[in-house]
Design a protein around this nucleic acid. Structure first.
Lengths: 135, 135
DNA sequence: CTCCCGCTTCGAGCGCGCTCGAAGTCAAGG
DNA sequence: CCTTGACTTCGAGCGCGCTCGAAGCGGGAG
């Protein structure tokens, strides 16, 4: 594991993690990380070592972390791709902000809805507990 | 629309809605409602009129509403089916309660996680707004 | 020199949750 | 009697987000 890290890291003075390490840090699989890159979710293709292996920088990891946050809050892949494209081309700050704004509102709404449902589930659980206690 | 309601309702003294009406009330499609039934998500098959049409009672609608709550909070179809089966067979209160308990904890955890991500998104938005204001 | 291991690309496959269309039935209205 | 329209069943199809396996390469250890 440390040996593996050294494999790539030693060649470039500690900078750059392999795909497996990066994946583990982000809570994804190597397959998924490559898939995200293929699918244009990354601002730029990840740098490669001389032998063609991906080498993830700290900036790559920060971006990917943001992607996981967007995914975990339900932003579709397509929309993340759009956002990434805007970043890639530079500028477009208003549009990027608009995407984040819209997403935030959706997430807030969904959060409120889930909280409402959770309340109903709580009440259902209370009923079961009363029912079971009454025996 | 009111005419449609009468079609089925008039035959049985106001009790029982057609699939389309029930679907609309629950925020689902008629296709989905039939699919749920086929898939065993309902405690019992919905009653039929003489002509074989489904007729949803108030109790059906309450159950389906619960199903939509469970779905909206991310419970998988399979698990709802299991829960429905336990209800169908009668008894099994502890197991039903256990399912709801487990689900509640998952939902709470996921809620907390999403709130965390939302905070990060908020901060990102702030950065953009500062950046744009600084022009 | 050979072995092994982790990476590479590519394309197919999968699980989930619907979603839809075709073809047929039935009851009421004109 | 004929049309209309909401219903019925059945099975196929789809969109999403991965997930996986095959086949090949390159570089360090024994």
């Amino acid at each position: 594991m440390t040996t593996t890290a050294t494999t790539t890291a030693a060649t470039a003075g500690e900078e750059g993690l392999g795909v497996a390490e990066a994946a583990q840090l982000c809570g994804l699989t190597a397959h998924t990380l490559r898939y995200y890159e293929r699918d244009g979710l990354l601002v730029a293709p990840v740098r490669r070592t001389a032998s063609g292996h991906r080498s993830y920088t700290a900036a790559d990891l920060r971006w990917i972390t943001m992607v996981t946050r967007l995914r975990a809050t339900g932003m579709p892949i397509r929309e993340i791709r759009t956002y990434a494209e805007l970043c890639r081309r530079g500028g477009h700050e208003e549009e990027r902000l608009a995407i984040l704004h819209a997403h935030r509102e959706r997430v807030r709404a969904q959060l409120a809805e889930v909280q409402g449902h959770l309340g109903a589930i709580d009440r259902k659980i209370d009923l079961y507990e009363q029912h079971l206690a009454a025996r």
